[in-house]
Amino acid sequence: MIEIRFHGRGGQGAVTAAQILAKAAFYDGKFCQAFPFFGVERRGAPVMAFTRIDDKKITLRCQIYNPDYVVVQDSSLLESVNVVDGLKKDGAVIINTVKDDLNLGFKTYTIDATGIALDVLGVPIVNTAMVGAFAGVTKLVTIESVKKAILETFKGKLGEKNAKAAEVAYNEMLKKYG
């Protein structure tokens, strides 16, 4: 079982990102589960969301304490949240930042997802780009399934733009990290 924790801010779509990743895994033939951290939701406040992916039915219902991957949608969270808390030793962080050389003591993959979101969507909502980046780094889900899940989540033009944002981020990660 692979466990992923998303860190974001209320309104940045961390929960939607976790759900899109779960759906993408499902389209790839896996079992999945995604849920928000059950806390107080306020726009802009730090939030978490979780995704589990497995080859068999997932019955586990507790929160994720020792993730395999951490996805950080907003590097400003580093000031107030220990995003690598409980991360497995050989786990990895995928983080939205303009700093290429950021190292959080774990395998760290960086991407300027805000730049991509502003370019492609015109707003700094990075969740779909971050799922694309996750797919590019981990290859745990295919970009085709990610795009399919995005198009199902957002209807019409918005869906197409978000699928594009995911693809741009995916390709950038492939180029950067192979």
């Binding site: 759906k23 499902f26 079992f31 999945c32 995604a34 849920f35 059950f38 997932i58 219902r61």
Partner: peptide, 12 residues
Amino acid sequence: LDGFILTHTVEP
């Protein structure tokens, strides 16, 4: 059904 644990969790 358990609030949040099921109501707000997606699964197949």
